[in-house]
Design a protein around this nucleic acid. Structure first.
Lengths: 183, 183
DNA sequence: GTCTAGCGTCTCAGTACTGAGATATTGGTC
DNA sequence: GACCAATATCTCAGTACTGAGACGCTAGAC
């Protein structure tokens, strides 16, 4: 079944069936992500924001002041990227840096009143854009997909163990964790 | 339930439940994608290739010569990006351009023997890296996730319809379609 | 007190692209 | 045959980052 399809024009893939299944998943995962990403980016762009900027604003709104290192880990950007993004948001007057009382190396990012107002204004429409983007699945299917992707992401993030189901380090994160720049 | 969690430190999200479900899915989708992407990129980088370059090589290997426009649509890169990537692969001696006999605007990208040898050498290990990265799910779960993500991606790509399940334009693509730069 | 390993942030050069517009063809339509 | 909208590729300036290293600070060992 696989052989027939991959053969049609080029060379055979020559992978075994579990691997073919994995590759197929990777393809549709990438495409699904790219499609939803497009919607999320387009919505953020309507307000002159990149999705990374939007993600920072939203994280600060929902979680309160965050150390730059926390921002970095939450948004999954590089340390240089964090500095760059917060600089830009600061220039736009949406975010401020504040010294951390207990640790003079560290600094907080905090929403300015203007930044807070902006998030309050644009977040609902953004959330709705996401809702529409994923509306190809019913809510029940969405929950199912969430469960599967959570398990997938956990293993992949830990290094992608080869054996079956690694049981380790559960409950290190609060399960719900506003992250991917726009949620 | 949602309110409690999102309230804990910052402000309430203020979205209804279906939207909260959608946002949660978007978060885990992004994280899962980022994690697997990391593995795929790392493997491509071992051979001095970006994932986009790898994707082109692999597409040419499995499908045979492709017009640049076809490469663009398959890999989901911009037209400028296609030129850029094929240029670079040409400089590396892995790909060649060939005129299209029937249309003098168009040009084919074709693997050189060296390019073909390279893909043959590195593809199995790459496929295995993907397999390990997604091994947090059993093959059965992977198939289930694939089905869900396929439906999700289809709707999102069409513009993210709001109503329930849009039934349109099926069968425009061969269902399996080697794409996301590394599969 | 004095090291020293390690963390948190910033700097900066580099990179892999994107997007808009330019150029060359093509396949109709009149 | 002349026109023209559509298509295929290329050019190029711009962008949103990444990654490696620098710097200042902290905290634990002695």
């Amino acid at each position: 079944m696989l052989t027939k399809q991959t053969r049609e024009r080029g060379r055979a893939t020559g992978v075994d069936e579990p691997t073919a299944t994995a590759l197929k998943l990777w393809v549709v995962l990438s495409r699904a992500h790219a499609s939803v990403l497009g919607h999320a980016q387009a919505d953020a762009a309507r307000h002159g924001l990149t999705l990374a900027e939007f993600g920072i604003l939203e994280a600060l709104y929902h979680k309160g002041p965050l150390l730059l290192g926390q921002v970095q880990r939450t948004l999954l950007v590089s340390s240089g990227g964090t500095t760059f993004l917060v600089d830009r948001l600061e220039r736009k007057g949406l975010v401020e840096r504040r010294d951390c009382p207990g640790d003079r190396r560290a600094r907080y990012a905090v929403l300015t009143p203007r930044g807070e107002r902006l998030v309050r204004e644009i977040f609902p429409a953004h959330a709705d854009a996401i809702r529409r983007a994923v509306s190809g699945l019913t809510p029940a299917e969405q929950r199912q997909a969430t469960t599967l992707l959570r398990a997938l992401g956990r293993t992949a993030a830990e290094g992608g163990a080869s054996g079956s189901r690694t049981r380790r380090a559960r409950s290190r994160r609060p399960a719900v964790d506003g992250r991917p720049a726009g949620a």
